[in-house]
């Protein structure tokens, strides 16, 4: 089935307790096919809750969430929703089920009732896509954090989802593990045009996505391209977020009299712009 509109939320709201605060507060959002969107926000801003709404792990207490046009609130859609929208979580240790890498990748397929002969090529393909083929027979606890997360990505990928939601999948990794997982997912997004919702608090990762969404108190506070969002240095600081170092430096240089354009995010950008004016 072709998925035209991977994720759409219409005033989606979620509260944990009957009359408690809204963790997600009337969020309306549509994510176009094949894009990679970063969701930022400090702890308690509702990013994780929003992610779980996109995979029917939570059902909206108000409003609607549609995954590939399927209303997550309808019980008959439950397994379809989860097949279309795969999810990778924060803790690498707490999402691997099997004692062998290959078998963990198979877990989702087994649950979907995919016939065994069909599983094998799908597992191989998924492991290849995350560059973990040589670890197919390894025990998960012997892998590094970045490798474990790539196994988790393969487990989702094997289910051939349209959307992948990664809920702070790099938060517990070291810089090389982070880079490893991010670039793997970015590549899948580009090559297999899988829509990605990348929840993070690392600004440098968000800067490499197509679009950045900032949540605050469960509502959308900022929404735009990385260049648009990260040029609003003061606003970001007010929301308790980091500013990419180069964006901050650009601002400092502007105050010092250099005329630099808006939207400098990376060292590459900065080198390019400085060469023009130095």
């Amino acid at each position: 089935m072709d998925c035209i509109q991977p994720i759409e939320t219409q005033g989606a709201t979620y509260r944990y307790e009957e009359d408690g605060q809204q963790a997600v507060d009337h969020v309306s959002l549509s994510i176009p096919k094949g894009s990679m969107i970063a969701v930022l926000g400090h702890n308690g801003s509702g990013k994780s809750t929003l992610a779980k709404l996109m995979n029917a792990l939570y059902l909206p207490t108000e409003g609607r969430v549609l995954v590939c046009g399927l209303d997550t609130a309808l019980e008959e859609n439950l397994w379809d929703v989860r097949r279309h929208a795969g999810m990778v979580f924060q803790n690498p240790d707490n999402q691997i089920v099997a004692t062998v890498v290959r078998e963990d990748v198979a877990f989702g397929l087994e649950n979907l009732g995919v016939p065994q002969p069909e599983m094998l090529p799908r597992i191989d393909e998924a492991l290849l896509a995350v560059r973990m083929t040589e670890y197919a027979a390894a025990a998960p606890h012997m892998l590094s954090g970045g490798q474990k997360q790539r196994v988790a990505v393969a487990g989702v990928l094997a289910m051939q989802p349209d959307v992948m939601i990664l809920d702070e999948a790099t938060a517990m990794l070291d810089p090389s593990g982070r880079e490893e997982v991010f670039s793997t997912v970015r590549k899948l997004n580009r090559e297999k045009s899988i829509t990605v919702v990348w929840i993070t608090h690392f600004m440098e990762e968000a800067a490499l996505c197509d679009r950045v969404l900032v949540l605050h108190h469960g509502a959308i506070a900022m929404d735009g391209t990385p260049r648009e969002v990260f040029s609003q240095v003061d606003e970001l600081k007010k929301l308790g977020l980091d500013v990419p170092p180069m964006a901050e430096l650009a601002e400092m240089l502007r105050q010092g009299g250099l005329s630099l354009p808006a939207g400098i995010l990376t060292v590459d950008d900065m080198v390019k712009e400085l060469k023009a004016c130095l």
Binding site: N55, L57, R82, G86, M87, N91, V97, M159
Partner: peptide
Amino acid sequence: ELAMAMEARC
């Protein structure tokens, strides 16, 4: 967390 991850994988 594992229960949630398992559910998310159907």
